[in-house]
Computed example of a mutant assay.
Amino acid sequence: MTATTDATVPTRDQVLRAPKVLLHDHLDGGLRPQTIIDLAAECGHPLPADDADALAAWFAESADSGSLVRYLETFDHTVAVMQSGPAIARVARECVEDLAADGVVYAEIRYAPEQHVEGGLTLDEVVAAVQQGFDEATAAAGGRIVVRQLLTAMRHQARSMEIAELAVAWRGRGVAGFDIAGAEAGYPPTRHLDAFEYLQRENSHFTIHAGEAFGLPSIWQAIQWCGADRLGHGVRIIDDITVADDGSVELGRLAAYVRDKRIPLEMCPASNIQTGAAASIAEHPIGLLTRLRFRVTVNTDNRLMSGTSMTAEMWALVEAFGYTLDDLRWFTINAMKSAFLPFDERLAIIDGVVKPGYAALAAEG
Score class of each variant (00 low, 15 high):
A49E: 13
D50A: 04
D50P: 03
A52G: 04
A52W: 06
D53I: 12
D53Q: 13
A54R: 10
A56T: 02
A57W: 01
A57T: 12
A57C: 00
W58F: 01
W58N: 06
F59L: 04
F59K: 01
F59T: 00
A60H: 09
A60G: 01
A60P: 00
A60C: 00
E61Q: 05
E61H: 02
S62R: 09
S62Q: 10
S62D: 00
S62E: 00
A63F: 14
D64R: 15
D64V: 00
D64M: 09
S65W: 06
S65R: 04
S67V: 12
L68Y: 13
L68F: 14
L68A: 12
V69S: 13
V69I: 14
R70P: 04
R70I: 03
R70G: 04
Y71T: 04
L72H: 10
L72N: 13
E73K: 12
E73D: 15
E73W: 06
T74D: 00
T74Y: 00
F75R: 03
D76H: 14
D76K: 13
D76W: 10
D76N: 15
D76Y: 13
H77D: 03
H77K: 06
H77R: 03
T78Q: 03
T78H: 07
T78G: 05
V79R: 14
A80D: 06
A80Y: 01
A80V: 07
A80F: 03
V81Q: 06
V81T: 01
M82Q: 15
Q83H: 06
Q83W: 00
S84V: 04
S84M: 01
G85W: 08
P86F: 13
P86L: 08
A87Q: 08
I88N: 11
I88W: 12
I88A: 11
I88D: 09
I88Q: 11
A89N: 05
R90I: 07
R90A: 12
R90Q: 15
V91D: 08
V91F: 07
A92G: 02
A92H: 07
R93W: 09
R93C: 11
R93L: 07
E94N: 10
E94Y: 06
E94R: 06
E94T: 10
C95H: 12
C95W: 08
C95F: 13
V96H: 06
V96S: 08
V96F: 09
E97M: 10
L99R: 14
L99P: 00
A100I: 04
A100F: 03
A100G: 12
A100V: 11
A101H: 10
A101D: 14
A101Y: 04
A101I: 02
G103N: 03
G103V: 02
G103H: 01
V104H: 02
Y106N: 02
Y106F: 13
Y106T: 03
Y106V: 01
Y106K: 02
A107G: 04
E108D: 08
E108S: 11
E108A: 07
E108P: 08
I109K: 00
I109M: 10
R110I: 08
Y111H: 07
Y111G: 11
A112E: 07
A112V: 11
A112R: 07
E114Q: 15
E114H: 15
E114S: 15
Q115D: 13
